[in-house]
Nucleic acid binder design. Structure first.
Lengths: 121, 121
DNA sequence: GTCCACGTTTAATAAATAGTCAACATTGAC
DNA sequence: GTCAATGTTGACTATTTATTAAACGTGGAC
């Protein structure tokens, strides 16, 4: 890795949009609220540096009021929480995911599966 | 982290069992085949060092003829392949996993869900 | 015209993770 | 009794990932 312009641009767009109505969304202040330096955020937004760790991305999503999974996906990371879920039942969860992949399930298929799960419990 | 005795012991047990019928499963030779130093393996098996990266754990599982997910789970890691599957459809996959957790699905429930998935495709 | 907040750049690290080498003590094989 | 292979130990080293401080140029507010 060495920078992710798509992620950076997305953060910048979201932040600038927020800044219009709330000037505390300046790069410096936003960085501080996220818990990283302005330097780092600048390089991330311009695509020079890689996205920060998942934890910081999640904080960004909260502040920017967008879905964390979307930002994490752009950053090519996964929510550590999902790793924990998998670890709670490794074989079954791994099977579940691999089956979804091997069968080439569509988003609709997956959504139907989720509804099915909900009926079981 | 600072060592994982359970993982280490499990590897040692499996390796020694193999060694009984195949003397090439000595610590040194096994380490070499896995692609790590004997030193490192020794410290892992005695629980002094953390498990190696996922890639090496998977190689170990293959050589020891056990399921990789079991060893990965002991090592408190997840197969990077699962991360890739999630990234292919982040929101739907995340939803799937969180639903499984929130509903407290049992292994049997998950297995039933897998069968359901297979019928869809 | 200077002050202040903005975002940027240069130049380094810091922190975490993953691993090695050389030298050692121990044991069974010859 | 020495040789060869075993596993272990102490002291480092490497790699990857994540991040910073300080100094800089720019533009609006006063």
């Amino acid at each position: 890795m060495a920078g992710n312009p798509e992620f950076g641009q997305r953060i910048r767009d979201l932040r600038e949009a927020k800044k219009v109505v709330d000037p505390t969304f300046s790069l410096r202040q936003f960085a501080q609220r996220v818990g990283i330096s302005a330097t780092f955020l600048s390089k991330i937004e311009t695509g020079e540096f890689d996205p920060p760790r998942a934890e910081h991305i999640i904080t960004m999503a909260t502040l920017l009021e967008v879905d964390a999974d979307e930002l994490l996906a752009l950053a090519d990371k996964t929510d550590p929480e999902l790793g924990d879920i998998i670890k709670s039942e490794p074989k079954a969860m791994a099977d579940l995911l691999r089956t979804a992949r091997d069968r080439g399930l569509t988003v609709e298929d997956l959504e139907r599966t989720i509804r099915y799960m909900k009926k079981q419990s």
